[in-house]
């Protein structure tokens, strides 16, 4: 990319981009800052940005009102569980579509992706009733199953695009050396696709972590993840903004930290492998 751009213009563009970036980031920063304020300071006018008495009382209050640990572990189990289960189903499927394409492969892919565009309410009631009858309501297992199903199209699609980039020759060479089909997938394909699988994993953990429609509708208390935890703060205590901020911060912190340490995979994952 050696496009000639003058230094002055570059400076202006950089400044402009950063102004936008800060504006975009501001709501997150503000939420985190407010969580350390007292309720009075949170709604003080004019609001102070950094110069206030930092306090952690909101976190203590949130923790005593609801069990953060339980919701956190629910979130971890549900998002990791559904992603791993999804990968287990998707890797063979993506392998078959990428390396042994049949007449219908393209159609299946498109049809599968298009289910992502169908409104989830369309299947909410049958799933709810099935879950009620099988006792899966408000259980982690139930949510793992549902989120696997919901995110499966994306997982398959992403893996398919990554697998497509792997030269078939290498797999064929392994086959010539007498590798069986399953060892071909496990020992040759999977290690080569690790970056792609990592991005897929990361993206789907985040998607599952943030999924609210299903988690709000299918859980009550026991299996409620962080999204349900934070939603419980929205209505009855709508005016306690410092506590609300503390709860929000606790809900988003794991993702923000995870995102910071895995920026590269995250960007790759979020852009479906388009950015490397």
């Amino acid at each position: 990319m050696a496009r000639a751009v003058s230094t002055r213009r570059k400076l202006i563009v950089t400044l402009l981009a950063w102004t936008i970036g800060i504006a975009i980031f501001f709501p997150i920063l503000w939420t985190v800052l407010t969580s350390f304020k007292t309720e009075a300071e949170a709604i003080a006018s004019p609001p102070s940005l950094f110069f206030f008495d930092w306090t952690t009382e909101n976190y203590a209050a949130v923790q005593s009102r609801s069990n953060y640990g339980l919701h956190f572990s629910n979130s971890v189990i549900i998002s990791l569980g559904s992603t791993l289960l999804g990968l287990l189903i998707a890797i063979p499927a993506a392998w078959s579509m990428a390396f042994v394409p049949g007449k219908w492969t393209k159609d299946i892919l498109m049809w599968m992706l298009s289910t992502k565009m169908l409104p989830p309410v369309g299947v909410l009631i049958p799933i709810y009733l099935m879950f009620r009858d099988t006792g899966l309501l408000d259980s982690r297992l139930g949510l793992v199953i549902v989120l696997t199903l919901i995110n499966l199209p994306i997982i398959v699609w992403m893996l398919y695009t990554y697998f497509k980039e792997i030269p078939v020759d290498i797999l064929e060479a392994a086959r010539m050396d007498g590798a069986a089909l399953w060892s071909e997938i496990i020992y040759v394909l999977t290690p080569m696709a690790v970056p792609g699988i990592a991005s897929t994993l990361l993206l789907n953990v985040i998607l599952a972590w943030n999924e609210a429609f299903w988690t709000l509708n299918l859980t009550a208390a026991k299996a409620a993840p962080l999204t349900a935890f934070i939603a419980s703060y929205s209505s009855p205590e709508g005016l306690f903004y410092a506590k609300l901020s503390a709860a929000s911060t606790m809900a988003i912190a794991p993702i923000l930290i995870l995102g910071w340490f895995s920026q590269k995979q995250l960007v790759r994952g979020l852009t479906f492998g388009a950015v490397k």
Partner: peptide, 26 residues
């Protein structure tokens, strides 16, 4: 246009997407 600190900027732009709609709404 190849701005400075492009990767950081890109991550910042993606952060809102990493938040759930619930947190965004609140």
């Amino acid at each position: 246009q190849k701005i400075r600190f492009e990767n950081t900027f890109r991550s910042i732009m993606l952060y809102p997407f990493a938040l759930s709609f619930i947190v965004t709404g609140l």
